[in-house]
Nucleic acid binder design. Structure first.
Lengths: 232, 232
DNA sequence: CCTTTCAATTGATAAATGTCAAGTGAAAGG
DNA sequence: CCTTTCACTTGACATTTATCAATTGAAAGG
C-alpha cells in the first residue's frame, strides 16, 4: 500500500482514536487495491478474511436467494463493510461488487480481531460503527414494512436532495435499476412510480431530478428522523 | 432488585466475562420489575435511558409510521433490547411492549456507557452482541426482499420446528396476528397462506402446528443458513 | 459516423397482497 | 350456563406490485 493512503485511513472515525502502535499493527498487513467497475469483491457465504474500507469509488452490497437478487445498500468513500462478519469470524451475509472503479483497503480480519482485543479505543470505535450500522438497517426494515414503494421513493428523493445541500435540482447517484432494487421494487415499477410523483412536483429526466414542490412531496412522503435521518 | 436475580444476569453472555467490580457497578443502579401483559415499556423516539433485559416473559418490539404499525421482533428470556440506542445515546427506533407478564431488568444507559469505557471484556461482549443483532436484522431484510410471504411463512415454520427439537408437532409461540406482522403480511393473508401450505404437509389447528411432509415443505422453503440460521 | 448494446420506458396482463365486511368459534367473565 | 369478547377465518373485491414483451433512446465501441 502507498504511504499516501495512510493519513486518509487514520482520519476515518473507526481508526481516529486508537493508539499509534495498534494502528501500525493494523496497517502492516493491509492491502490497498484498485478495482475496475463491476468486479466481485466478496461472495455471500464465504468466510470473511478481510475488513473492507472504501476509499474511493462505489460498492454495492447485495444478496441472492433462489435465482433472485436484491441490492442491500450502496457504499461510497469512508464506508466500511463486513465489519460484523469480521468481528464475529462468521460467513458473509452479503456479496459485494464495485460499481465504479474503486480504491479499497483490505485489513486482515484476524488482525482486526487481535487489535480489537488489545486497543480499547478501537473497540469503542467498532462498537459505535456497529451500532450505527445496526440502526441503519432497522430504519431500512421500517421503511420496507411500513411504506409503499411510492412512499419509499418519495422519501429517498427528499433524502437525496438534503444530501445535495437542498438544491432543487440534483443528479441521481445510482442507476435506476439499482435504485429500484434498493427500494425493493422492479425497474418497471420505479419508472411508473416516478411518473406518479409528477403531481407532487417531481421531474426526472435521465439522471437529473428536479423537485419543484418540495412541500407537496413532503406531505406525501411524511419523512421522519426515525426512518430517514441517517445520523441519530 | 432481588439478590436472587443477580446470578441469572451474571450468567448472560453480555455480562459473563466482565470484571466483578464492573458488574457490581452496573447492577448497583439496576431495576428489576414485573410488568403485566400488554404494558408499554418504551416509546419509539424517546431518549434511551435504560438498557433492557428480558428475564422472563415475552416482549414485542414494534414500530409505527403514519397510522401503520409493524412488529419488528419478539423477544424472550435472555434477550437484550435497545442496546444500540443505549450505547450511542440516541433515541429509540422501536417501541416495546410486553405480551405476557414479564420480568425485566433495566440498567441505566449511562452506567452501561461508563462501564463500557472501563471494562474491556464488557466492551467485547457488547460488540459481539451488536454484531449478532446486526446480522439478525440483515437476515430479516434478505427474507423480506427476496421471498414471498408464503416462502417466509414456510421458513418460519421450519425454523420453529427446529427450535422445538424437530418434533413434527409443536405450538405456535405467538398469536397469529403478530406472526403475520412479523412476517410482513396481514392476518387475513396469513390465514390464506397457511391454507396454501396444506399440499406441503402443513396443518395448523389453533396454535398447534403439524408438519407431516417436512421434505416437501423444505423444497418450497429452500432454507439457507445465510437467512434462516439465527447463529452464524 | 455508424453500429451495437443495454438501461429505461411503456403497455398489457398476471400474480401477490391488502381491504372490507361478515361470519365462526373458542376462551374469559359474569 | 350463558353471554360477551375478540382473534381468527372466509369471501368478494380493490390495490399494489411483478412479469412479459416490445420499443425507445442514449452511451460506448469500432
Amino acid at each position: 500500500m502507498r504511504e499516501s493512503d495512510i493519513p486518509a485511513i487514520r482520519s476515518l472515525e473507526l481508526f481516529r482514536e486508537m493508539a499509534d502502535e495498534s494502528f501500525a499493527e493494523l496497517v502492516r498487513g493491509a492491502y490497498v487495491q484498485n478495482f475496475p467497475p463491476n468486479m466481485d469483491l466478496i461472495l455471500e457465504g464465504d468466510q470473511c478474511d478481510f475488513l473492507h474500507i472504501v476509499i474511493d469509488g462505489t460498492v454495492e452490497l447485495f444478496a441472492n436467494w433462489s435465482d433472485r437478487e436484491t441490492a442491500m445498500t450502496i457504499l461510497r468513500g469512508g464506508a466500511t463493510f463486513i465489519l460484523a462478519a469480521a468481528i464475529r469470524d462468521a460467513p458473509n451475509l452479503m456479496s459485494a461488487r464495485t460499481l465504479e472503479r474503486s480504491r479499497i483497503i483490505m485489513l486482515p480480519a484476524e488482525d482486526v480481531r487481535l487489535v480489537f482485543e488489545k486497543d480499547h479505543a478501537f473497540a469503542r470505535a467498532v462498537v459505535m460503527e456497529l451500532a450505527y450500522c445496526y440502526r441503519g438497517v432497522i430504519k431500512g426494515v421500517k421503511g420496507l414494512k411500513l411504506r409503499t414503494s411510492i412512499e419509499r421513493l418519495a422519501n429517498y428523493l427528499l433524502k437525496s436532495q438534503k444530501k445535495f445541500g437542498g438544491a432543487s435540482e440534483f443528479s441521481l447517484p445510482v442507476e435506476k435499476r439499482r435504485l429500484a432494487s434498493i427500494l425493493g421494487m422492479t425497474p418497471e415499477n420505479l419508472s411508473r412510480s416516478i411518473k406518479s410523483l409528477r403531481p407532487y412536483g417531481v421531474e426526472i429526466a435521465g439522471q437529473v431530478v428536479k423537485i419543484t414542490k418540495p412541500d407537496d412531496l413532503k406531505t406525501l412522503a411524511k419523512p421522519t428522523s426515525l426512518i430517514d435521518d441517517p445520523r441519530s
